[in-house]
Simulated assay, not measured.
Amino acid sequence: MKILLIGRDGQVAWELRRSLACLGKVIALDRRSAPVLDLTDPDSIRTAIRQVQPQLIVNAAAYTAVDKAEQESDLAWRINAVAPGIMAEEALTVGAGLIHYSTDYVFPGDGETPYRESHPTGPQNAYGRSKLAGEQAIQQTGVHHFILRTAWVYGRRGQNFLLTMLRLMRERELLRIVDDQRGAPTWSRLIAEATALMVARSGENGRFEPGDRQGIYHLTCGGQTSWYGFACRIRDYSHENGLLPESAARLEPIPSSDYPTPASRPAFSVLSNEKLFQHFGLQLPAWDQALELCLSD
């Protein structure tokens, strides 16, 4: 199988370059590659896909600056909403399938039980609206697809909460962390490995054939916590295992109202992974177990 991976060095894309390699030839492109694939340029998307002629397209690139998207909504829309639709159209043209990553931010965050794939959406910020539009653009084409919604993604590369906390805990005496937003931190490597397993179980004669299993899936680690709870576990494990000094910052829980941001965040964005288990028998570990695996890596 020839796989076109859109994105090369992002925290999920970097892991996908390794996990997908056992399934076929992986060609990873971005705006710095040759050929160029620039998500803000529809012609470059079309040209790259037609040149590669893949059997599967995996889009691991996105505009993810949630707060900045409030001022750059047009750019976020072009990358997160328009570009996936073009990928889907071109996938149909070359006879490929499409895997695309979305977000928990497509939901309003006003619930108390984990969101299922069928739950009504209602994004509260420009980023979430652009990601939901990307999902819809893909679905409208009729291309064979998986849309994988994940959340609170972190890893050992890129810019994410884990790496930010490890840095700030060394630099400061006190960190005040929001404690009234709940979600499931998810390690990028587990996202990539689960994706590869889904592809392996949906392949036939070197092609991506998901059949009646195509559609939207939630893909997060199990359990739930707050940003403060996440930070506490990072600090505790890192301290216990010599990754942080004794002088690491103290942590203090605060409400979201004490840390205003340009973009509204959902108060509750835990996703149900039951559909993933029912259709593929896949279940990611609990968020705290995954964090320990990542930090011990």
Rank of each mutant, 00 (worst) to 15 (best):
E246I: 01
A61S: 15
T47H: 14
V178R: 03
N205I: 00
G222A: 05
A76T: 04
C232E: 06
A69G: 12
W187V: 12
T164I: 00
H279F: 07
H279G: 00
W227V: 02
L98H: 13
P108D: 15
L92V: 04
N273P: 06
V82W: 01
N80Q: 12
R182A: 11
N160I: 09
M165L: 15
G10C: 05
N125F: 03
W14D: 07
N160S: 10
G211R: 11
G215Q: 11
V106E: 12
D180W: 13
I79Y: 00
L244P: 06
Q159F: 05
S296F: 04
R176P: 00
S226P: 01
R18L: 12
C294S: 14
S269F: 02
K25R: 14
P210V: 05
Q51P: 03
I6D: 10
P120Y: 07
A88C: 12
H119P: 02
L219M: 11
R46S: 15
P120S: 00
T40W: 03
Q136F: 02
W152Y: 15
F146V: 09
N125E: 09
T64G: 01
L98R: 13
H144T: 09
L271M: 15
S19R: 14
L37D: 02
Y217L: 00
L98W: 11
A200G: 06
N241L: 00
H144D: 15
Q11E: 12
T40V: 12
Y259I: 10
N241A: 01
G95I: 10
S238V: 07
T40Y: 05
R8V: 15
L5G: 11
V153M: 08
R116D: 08
H119A: 15
A76Y: 13
L132H: 09
H279K: 09
P123G: 09
P123V: 06
M87D: 09
I49K: 07
I216T: 15
A81E: 12
T40D: 03
Q139C: 10
P210L: 03
L271T: 02
L98Q: 08
L75H: 13
S272K: 02
C221Y: 03
W14P: 05
L5H: 12
L243Q: 14
D67V: 04
I191M: 09
E193W: 08
W152P: 01
A194F: 12
I86V: 15
P185F: 08
N80Y: 11
K2Y: 06
E89A: 13
Q124K: 07
E89C: 13
F107H: 15
L271A: 07
R167I: 00
L190G: 11
D9I: 00
A126D: 04
A88L: 07
P262L: 08
E292Y: 10
L39S: 01
